[in-house]
């Protein structure tokens, strides 16, 4: 069954949202993610463009500046909540791992 939109985030959704914690121009996201992940995560241009559009539609980011075709966005409350929920989910995963491999469950 397909996931409900943005209930969980793919790796690229996560990093793009993360980049918008501070006001950021869409096109600068490529460099920002590259720097942040030391090249471990690459976002395709189509993926980035479409996700920005979808995040805007979902109210997870908002446009703060338009300079010609350069548009800057920033995370909204809803976007922050989505990120927080995703982090919680990831932490739960890590916790489950820790229980099995580093904690009481470890053999």
């Amino acid at each position: 069954m397909p996931r409900e939109k943005f209930q969980t985030l793919t790796e690229q959704m996560f990093y793009i949202l993360l980049c918008f914690r501070d006001e950021c121009c869409g096109i600068d996201i490529f460099d920002k993610i590259n720097t942040m992940t030391h090249g471990a995560v690459t976002v395709g241009s189509g993926t980035l463009y479409n996700l920005i559009e979808q995040f805007l539609d979902a109210g997870m980011i908002r446009e703060v500046r338009v300079d010609g075709r350069r548009r800057s966005y920033i995370l909204t409350q809803k976007g922050e909540e989505t990120l927080a929920r995703e982090v919680k989910r990831l932490r739960a995963r890590v916790a489950h791992y820790d229980v099995l491999f580093n904690g009481e469950g470890a053999r």
């Binding site: 976002v43 395709g44 189509g46 979808q54």
Partner: peptide
């Protein structure tokens, strides 16, 4: 251009 299958 497309790096995320869900988005694609």
């Amino acid at each position: 251009i497309e790096t995320d299958p869900v988005t694609q």
